[in-house]
Design a protein around this nucleic acid. Structure first.
Length: 117
RNA sequence: AGAGUCGCCCGGAUCACCGCGUCAUAGAAAUAUGCCGAGGAAAGUCCGGACUCCAAAGAGCAAAGUGGUGGGUAACGCCCACCCGGAGCAAUCCGCGGGAUUAGUGCAACAGAAAGCAAACCGCCAACGAAAGUUGGUAAGGGUGAAACGGCGGUGUAAGAGACCACCAGUAAUUGCAGCAAUGCAGUUAGCUAUGUAAACCCCACUUGGAGCAAGACCAUGCAGUUGGCGCUUGAGAGCUGCUCGCUCGAGUCAACGGGUAGGUUGCUUGAAUCUGUAAGUAAUUACAGAUCUAGAUGGAUGGUGAUCCCUCGCAAGAGGACAGGAUCCGGCUUAUAGGGCGACUCUUCUU
RNA sequence: GGCCCCGUCGUCUAGCGGCCUAGGACUCUGGCUUCUCAAGCCAGCUACGCGGGUUCGAAUCCCGUCGGGGCUA
């Protein structure tokens, strides 16, 4: 679970992460990561549309994803904005391993970009 | 034992560790400790309210809704009791259940002579005629249809007919009794008696001002105007549903193009509240007394791991746990719902 | 939060309570025509979202549901 300081709360931040950030997609999820220069703790948000299922299903999925993000929270760089988008069949997904691989790929890509710059 | 009807309730339980949200306490802060943390439908948004704003919530029409009677309620289109009609052997269930005989209009396809007040296709009878048929009487019989001018039997007659009689059905007026009432029961009189449809228009009675917590209040942030219309007390425009009246505010306002902001606090949870008991009432419900505090999030808090028990499936290993997630709050209705429990009643059969 | 509209063959649509066993166009299937295909002609298949009610009779009227779409703050 994520503390209140570790959540994305503004639509501008969502737009920045999804449009300017690095993207990696697996079979059931799409991850976006954007690293700002601000010295803040990393923040994360979720996008789950109605096509995933009922209200109960969406809430359950959101809780599972948040839990998985918490397990990998320490590896995120300072000041980064993370957005996870759930796709239609993501209810049956194995959240734990899939989210972990998504995050690992995103973090590796950002480091590569920083090195090349 | 079998078949069935109705009502109410539960909606997996406990523990440990790591995490999340509000609040309280401590602390300069980081944080620590403690308490609490989704539902019977939170859903659909089909009704009714509380609350807030529209100056106040005024009148009439329009429009919409409701529709047996009495009661309950803050209120209702909800609930209870009763009446009437229908279904069922019964327990019980279903009903938008006012007015079509007096305010009026419309509709009733096809068939049929005829579908709403006027008539007569076949028939029956009489007269005329050689016959075909014509004229008149009649509505018992035939056939049509969802529905055909009360039903059956007799008297009567040329043939027939409520023309007359007995019994029955129904209508209106009226009297008595029972009931608060809807209505029921019993009688008298009348004309002898035409149907359905108002979930067709309509009439009658009653109800309804409008918007909604994105209501409303406060604080921040930010910008740039231009063109045209109507006005400045002889009144533009506004008071957010259609019209009229009335009332009030009133010096700017309306339209087009362009530009800017869309982030915090509050409203926010103690309430027609919940539980227990007593009393009144057939009941819905109400009154009184005592106890309790029971989510308040805002990109939106309930997840992960492990253990034991319960239930279902399976020989076992093992797999699974209905419908479904608060968003201002209450009272209902409707819809979804694995499985289980309790109570009351009816019918049939058997045993004692 | 509030308000409104629509569900008819595979698709797009008509439909005055009885003429509806629901019409039209395209599609599909079969046949005719042609050396073959296309076009043309003939025939056929296929629908009132679901459940109740009113009515003699409902796709149509009423109620409740399910699904889809739109407007508005």
């Amino acid at each position: 679970m994520l503390a209140k300081s570790a959540r994305l709360t503004e639509s501008g931040d969502f737009a920045r992460a999804t449009k300017s950030g690095i993207r990696y997609s697996s079979t059931n999820f799409v991850g976006y990561l954007y690293v700002t220069q601000l010295n803040q703790p990393a923040r994360a948000g979720l996008i789950l549309s109605k096509t995933i299922g009922s209200s109960v299903a969406r809430h359950r999925l959101a809780r599972k994803i948040r839990h998985c993000i918490f397990d990998n929270y320490a590896s995120l760089p300072n000041g980064s904005l993370l957005v996870i988008r759930g796709l239609n069949n993501s209810i049956e997904a194995d959240c734990k391993s899939e989210i972990a691989t998504v995050l690992a790929h995103l973090i590796r890509k950002t480091k590569e970009c920083a090195v090349t710059q």
